[in-house]
């Protein structure tokens, strides 16, 4: 089943085209890495998929429904980029923030029950951050906050997980743990779309690659990417090898 279909998607910011003619799709169970240089429109693509930015042309379908009419938001978990300046001194605990991830499953009036609290606890345990539950969100380190946001995205048991640069503030061991969680999620049948500029390690986890630079440079499986002569021409052999980890043979094993 197609989880996400983007067709000929274009996004304009003021008059400049940020994205042009982006077409790709993912099916359930997929693990898609979106990579590209800074300013290539990765974040814009994610925001456009979620209908946070309007598309100038083209369409996005989520679970078969056009994204502007889509309303089954509980099927999607979203981990936005962590910016440091956000909401300094905001009076909320990790528990309260994670619980908001459950609101997409609720109809008016969105009340949280005792059972919801248990769900939150379980998710926090899953990510091994239950000790953070009573901490103020504002007092966490960037890495802790990214894990909290992952918990918030996972707590509603979504089918599609969209992550925007979720590993930026994580140290390497945390990062591996983080990816393990995502892999476990996709093994259970969940779809993962992850945006990262960390093209060096994405190949170890993602099965499919979307290389973006304002338009789609490459979309396909990692194997195809690494064997593609077109990509060798585009990146040069060295860079292609770095992405493919051919010196480790990582991506090709999967």
């Amino acid at each position: 089943m197609k989880v996400l279909e983007a067709e000929d998607l274009s996004v304009k910011y003021q008059d400049a085209e940020v994205l042009t003619g982006v077409t790709f799709s993912t099916s359930s169970g997929d693990f898609l890495g979106i990579v590209g240089p800074n300013g290539s429109g990765k974040t814009t693509l994610v925001r456009c998929i979620l209908n946070l930015v309007p598309a100038a042309a083209g369409s996005v379908r989520l679970f078969g429904t056009a994204n502007d009419r889509f309303d089954e938001w509980s099927r999607i978990g979203y981990v936005p980029q962590v910016s440091d300046g956000r909401k300094r001194g905001f009076p909320a605990t990790v528990g309260e923030i994670v619980a908001t991830g459950l609101l997409s499953r609720k109809r008016f009036p969105r009340r949280l029950t005792r059972k919801d609290c248990q769900t939150v606890d379980e998710t926090l345990e899953l990510l091994a951050i239950q000790d953070l539950k009573g901490r103020m969100i504002d007092r966490l380190s960037g890495g802790q906050r990214q894990r909290v946001f992952l918990a918030r995205a996972l707590v509603g048991e979504p089918e599609l997980l969209l992550l925007d640069e979720p590993t930026a503030a994580l140290d390497p061991s945390m990062r591996d743990q983080f990816y393990e969680t995502l892999i476990a999620f996709s093994r259970r049948g969940g779809t993962v779309i992850i945006v990262t500029h960390d093209s060096g390690s994405i190949g170890r986890y993602a099965a499919t690659l979307l290389y973006l630079d304002r338009r789609v440079i490459f979309f396909g499986s990692f194997q195809q990417f690494c064997r593609s002569e077109r990509m060798t021409d585009y990146f040069g052999e060295h860079a292609q090898h770095l992405i493919c980890h051919q010196h480790e043979g990582g991506a090709l094993d999967r």
């Binding site: 946070l52 938001w73 509980s74 979203y78 936005p80 909401k87 908001t100 609101l103 997409s104 009036p109």
Partner: peptide, 22 residues
């Protein structure tokens, strides 16, 4: 009171609240 949780979500992070369907 009825929209307390919605308002809380929006106040913390407006875009995320939209992805929650609020």
């Amino acid at each position: 009171v009825l929209f307390m949780n919605d308002l809380f979500a929006i106040t913390y992070e407006e875009e995320y609240a939209r992805v929650l369907g609020i």
